[in-house]
Nucleic acid binder design. Structure first.
Length: 571
RNA sequence: CGGGGUGUAGCGCAGCCUGGUAGCGCGCCUGCUUUGGGAGCAGGAUGUCGGAGGUUCGAAUCCUCUCGCCCCGACCA
């Protein structure tokens, strides 16, 4: 491809509405342009990279035995009503009506459609297992799209769905996907971890998220420094510490704490450590239940763990008026004593003594509080979020906390959808059996953005060879000079003939501009053809990633470059 | 949805407080010079100041409403 004939609009300055590196660089390098909030066009350079990622995904999916199909983006409401998700999915599901006023939605995921295919076409256990996948544009009307391709409303996703006769088969299908995902992200040149995850609204029994490690990641993951355990902090278990017999040593007292509403204020006012405080959180579930949850002053309640315990879909802090009504005090002074609510405590509380709680009275706190003597929770459970240094649930190691970007997610779905939609096959005994399903997603655009997030410097993108839009950037420094131009053209033709993806910068620009654009776009190998080098019979090679430079004789150049690119493609 | 911010040339921004016919840098076009890390000189084009209404002799500027976008939170394969 000739740069002068190409469409590659680069920006010298960073657009002000781009926050993270990948978003800024994809805009500057002319890979994407915004059309609306969370909706982007891919320009040629971005599209080339996207296709590279897609190709890797397809190759590995095919290798794992999955079969590509293509489902519609517009899905009739009936299918979603059958699974029950038409009611439950919420506003993220963009709904629309056709001219006959029939209801449809833009598919944010395709369990319903694929299950409909499966129940129509799969009749016998002999047809199993089957894994169907597609690469498709999804739409989710996100509350807050952000970070460019990282969290768009419209985005390219690979989604796969496996069907098995029983759980053992489903586990096998799951493992195949897990392995394929590892290969995919490895081939994309990403540093990532596969972590245990919450199944969220998709439902199901087990799942792993594939997280690209990046400081700008929206998720926090906990991983053990000593063993292989890794989990989303939403899910990460915290080992119950052995409870030593505690002797209450303090008298219960009630002190005035005027205006001290936050744990920090109370701790500072009473001159005690945050760890000596117990927060009493009044929490409301989506089913309307209201409970009080106790966590240590310096800890954070983990909503997901609480939901699991309560069997709720959602919990939120009770509104101020409700807290006032139930505790008899404004927000900030709630305490466990005398409270007529279910009282749940984080397991850590069990090991505390002589602590501080709210007194359910304006501007008052109890100190010297102890379990048993002063109150007794209904139960103790793991209810807080993991923090760095917590003990690993599997070994004696300590947990570390990382930021990560979720690029892939695999779920064991079980029979949630197949049962709701009656997707069954006949087994060897001729009996109807509900299919066991799994679903497996990869954010293709997000994977590309993550790769840039992980591979860039002050000058621009540093593409890993396998997903680079071009493999070689051939910079012709003096396109008006016959010799330089001729040498560039010859090399360009030789490389193209060998199947190397070359971008020839034949623009009549100053060298400085060309080099800046070269660094910005991040094509892995730059070959410079200039008058100076040519006089000495050499071209100059420079690797974007390492900055390593090398001169090659004009006669050897093509062969040398071809060999090096092929080697780099293998990773 | 709550809180904050912002909208002025293709991009980045100033002007707004204190109303008086819209500016800077980059980019773009023309010419000459220049040519190994975003060139120099000279000339040139480009704006319904996000939109609607109001106050005023006069509004980018003040007031009201509205829309877009960004950030924080809540939420989320």
């Amino acid at each position: 491809m000739r740069y002068s004939q190409y469409f590659l609009p680069t920006l010298k300055e960073t657009p002000s509405d781009a926050e993270v590196a990948s978003h800024q660089l994809m805009l500057r390098a002319g890979m994407i342009r915004k059309v609306a909030a969370g909706i982007y066009s891919y320009l040629p350079l971005g599209l080339r990279s996207l296709r590279k990622v897609e190709r890797i995904v397809r190759e590995e999916m095919d290798r794992s035995g999955a079969i590509e199909i293509h489902m519609p983006m517009v899905v009739p409401a009936e299918l979603w009503q059958e699974s029950g998700r038409w009611e439950h999915y919420g506003k993220e599901l963009l709904r629309l009506n056709d001219r006959k006023d029939a209801s449809f939605c833009l598919g944010p995921t395709h369990e319903e459609v694929v299950t409909d295919i499966a129940r129509r076409e799969l009749k016998s256990y002999k047809q199993l297992p089957v894994n169907l996948y597609q690469v498709q544009t999804k739409f989710r009307d996100e509350i807050r799209p952000r970070f460019g391709l990282m969290r768009g409303r419209e985005f390219v996703m690979k989604d796969a769905y496996s069907f098995d006769l029983d759980e053992a088969g489903a586990n096998l299908s799951y493992q195949k996907m897990y392995d394929a995902y590892r290969r995919i992200f490895t081939r994309c040149g990403l540093r990532f971890r596969a972590v245990e995850a919450d199944t969220g609204s998709i439902g199901g029994t087990a799942s792993h998220e594939f997280m690209v490690l990046a400081s700008s990641g929206e998720d926090a993951i906990a991983s053990c420094g000593s063993c292989e355990y890794a989990a989303n902090v939403e899910k990460a278990q915290i080992r119950t510490l052995a409870v030593s017999a505690l002797q209450p040593s303090a008298q219960l007292e009630t002190l005035s704490t005027p205006g001290r509403k936050t744990v920090e204020d109370v701790a500072a006012f009473l001159k005690v450590d945050l760890q000596k405080l117990v927060k009493t959180l009044i929490v409301q579930t989506d089913t309307g239940e209201v409970v009080a949850v106790l966590v240590r002053g310096d800890r954070e309640l983990n909503d997901i763990k609480l939901c699991r315990l309560l069997g709720a879909n959602e919990v939120q802090m009770a509104p101020e008026e409700l807290v006032q009504k139930l505790t008899g005090a404004p927000v900030g002074f709630a305490g466990p004593m005398g409270l007529k609510l279910r009282l749940l405590a984080d397991q850590e509380i069990e090991a505390m003594s002589d602590f501080v709680v709210g007194a359910n009275q304006k501007d008052m706190h109890h100190v010297g509080v102890n379990l048993g003597r002063d109150f007794t929770p209904e139960l103790f459970a793991d209810l807080r979020s993991a923090v760095a240094g917590d003990q690993c649930p599997r070994c004696e190691g300590a947990l570390e906390i990382w930021r990560g970007i979720e690029v892939g997610h695999v779920f064991k779905l079980g029979t949630k959808y197949s049962e709701a939609m009656q997707a069954t096959v006949l087994d060897a005994e001729g009996k109807d059996r509900v299919l066991y399903m799994g679903c497996y997603g990869i954010g293709v655009g997000r994977t590309l953005a993550s790769a840039i997030e992980q591979n860039h410097d002050e000058q621009g993108i540093v593409f890993p060879m396998p997903i680079a839009p071009f493999q070689v950037l051939l910079v012709c420094l003096n396109p008006k000079d016959e010799k330089v131009c001729g040498a560039s053209e010859k090399l360009y033709a030789d490389l193209e003939a060998a199947g190397i993806e070359v971008l020839l910068d034949d623009r009549d620009e100053r060298p400085g501009s060309k080099f800046k654009d070269a660094d910005l776009c991040g094509i892995p190998l730059r070959v410079t053809v200039g008058g100076r080098g040519l006089e000495r019979g050499i071209f100059e090679l420079k690797w974007r990633a390492t900055g390593e430079q090398q001169e090659v004789a004009v006669a050897d150049a093509a062969g040398e470059i071809i060999a090096r690119v092929r080697k780099a493609m293998e990773g």
